[in-house]
Design a protein around this nucleic acid. Structure first.
Lengths: 351, 351
DNA sequence: TTGTAGGCGTTATCAT
DNA sequence: ATGATAACGCCTACAA
């Protein structure tokens, strides 16, 4: 097939009897060009079907108008909403979004990192893989003055922009809520402890128990690898078979919390009467399952938007100093049926 | 801050006493370069921290190693899995993925289309917005020999690659299943009829009724704009208040089906005994809610992988001919509790 | 306000 | 097997 020749600023220049530089300036709204000329040139450009070549502009500027995103998996409600927030904000500012998923594997994270770097992205937004410990693969961005925003799963040994929620308080409040409901043997589904968000949630859990004078029982703290449905199922089965089973579970994510409820049901354990459950994230499923799942809100889309804005605002600032700008968002406990031991008002309300 | 000078093939050339061309060829595994030299050069490149510049290579080749994705919304289970499938396949082949969401608005689709074009993507994967009717914005890709793969929500007045499921058969089978369960007044939640996937599902529904000798009642066919939870809720309420309410609903997506079940519960209508429901997509929620939702499988990730492969395999072939290569995937009815009127085996099985 | 010219990093062509 | 050179499209000092 014949491929149509693309229109360049040279073609426009010839057509309109201007120099290419004037065309270029006009298209970029350069102040030295009169409104009239700009309008004329832009209309001609549109008429001739001109489309800018980001590759050429990017090469010239050594930077593409692109934000890179590096996450574990796209098809998780939290991540999908995070990306959605990033995309929306970036798009409005005329930026594109390049995505990549590590599937929670360090090796993938490194190679995706390189792939994004090779595309000369304007900035990088990262939620670390479960495995990642070493952070060397991010250094080259810093060396080039390319801003990195870590979001949700952030490192604590690397200075950069960070966007997180207050995981400690969230963990504390979630646990406190269960205690308020009368739970005394509260289990915790903990995430990988080298990811500080999970460490913080657990700390909040521990402190809530301590403050209430409840004993900390190691056998009720289950350390998960990925907080998957399967892991949750297995853990719950084991817990409920204990001589003194827990009467409450605080899970570090909704997926595992849901599996706990389903497992309990199957084993004939009533939720919330015999076992109260609270999750984390407020996935869509939380409000729909029955009993509906109490959980902690996690403003995914907003975190994405903030992360993108960080990149957009960065432009040329230097942030390699030992300066770490952290944005901490609040969360709230969303009380639904799965943790309401005492009163049962709102029973059928979807929330 | 000081920005480190980036290493280019010229630096490598100087360092190794080769010409830039040789370096370039070696890095691209050109056959005229000996294995030994390639190894030498690649090792030096890695040692010196060389990273290729996709922008420059892309400009030179007038094509970036990037696949563009244009969808309605990322944070929908089907879409997230679709993207995930695309990303995984693209990544393995060394391609990047640029995403954009239209939020189901025509105007956004057009401008995103342009933004992706400006980045000189290798190929475009599209699931049309609900609004889109005119297809002119895609023409420029065809003119440049850039392949387009339409997936799921595809046009029927535009020749290109397409990846779809057999919506007619799916709609037929879903409806037939309800009939087999003894339903005689089956309602249908239909999507926007100018999107052929919804038209096909409806056709299947109608034919299933006809073949079974059941009357087609217009008042039981509800046309939705977006098949949202709210729309589903409203429609269900109206249906159940009819003098002769339906005893079955075939919804063109799971979201609306879930809302139907929840609405029915609230109104004291038993599912499936009084009202059987079957959805479409097999969203994660379908197997977890109670009663679990019968639905039609929709191989999102696989469709994404196939779409990406289409682009990767295209390389230079001409497909502007009046040739439309369509890949049709099969689906299957997933029977769960929400439609099992008669027998109740497997009651507590999650599916 | 507009034009000229050089270069961003890479690769393909042509030559050796 | 390797090298020299031009070109991809755009932007921006510098000049006018």
């Amino acid at each position: 097939m014949k491929i149509k020749k693309e229109v360049t600023i040279y073609d426009l220049a010839k057509e309109l009897n201007y120099s290419p530089s004037t065309i270029s300036r006009a298209l970029n709204n350069h102040k030295s060009i009169s409104k009239k000329t700009i309008k004329l040139i832009k209309e001609a450009a549109a008429g001739m079907g001109y489309r800018p070549n980001n590759l050429a502009a990017g090469l010239r500027n050594n930077k593409s108008n692109t934000i890179g995103v590096l996450i574990s998996r796209i098809n998780r409600p939290f991540m999908a909403s995070l990306i959605s927030g990033i995309e929306e904000t970036a798009r409005k500012a005329g930026y594109n979004v390049l995505i990549s998923q590590s599937n929670d594997m360090y090796e993938n994270e490194v190679s995706n990192c390189n792939a994004l770097y090779d595309s000369r992205i304007t900035g990088l937004i990262v939620s670390l893989s479960m495995e990642t410990v070493d952070m060397a693969h991010f250094q080259k961005f810093i060396d080039q003055g390319i801003p990195i925003v870590f979001v949700d799963r952030v490192p604590d040994n690397f200075n950069s922009y960070k966007v997180v929620i207050d995981n400690y308080t969230a963990g504390y409040s979630a646990t406190k809520h269960l205690i308020d409901q009368g739970c005394t043997r509260i289990a915790h589904f903990a995430g990988a402890q080298h990811r500080n968000i999970y460490e913080e949630r657990k700390k909040g859990y521990l402190d809530a128990l301590r403050e209430s004078g409840l004993p900390i029982r190691d056998e009720l703290i289950i350390h998960f690898k990925t907080l998957s449905f399967e892991e949750g199922n297995k853990a719950t089965k084991k817990l409920l078979k204990m001589p003194e089973p827990p009467d409450g579970i605080f899970s570090a994510n909704d997926t595992a919390a849901v599996s706990a409820i389903m497992c309990a049901k199957k084993m004939g354990v009533e939720v919330p009467q015999e076992l109260a459950v609270i999750g984390f994230n407020d996935d869509p499923i939380a409000s729909i399952m029955q009993p509906s799942l109490s959980t902690v809100s996690h403003p995914a889309s907003k975190m994405g938007a903030i992360s993108a804005k960080r990149i957009l605002n960065h432009s040329g600032q230097n942030y390699d100093a030992d300066l770490t700008e952290i944005t901490v968002l609040g969360t709230e406990i969303i009380v639904r049926d799965s943790s309401l031991k005492r009163t049962r008002m709102l029973r059928s309300k979807t929330s």
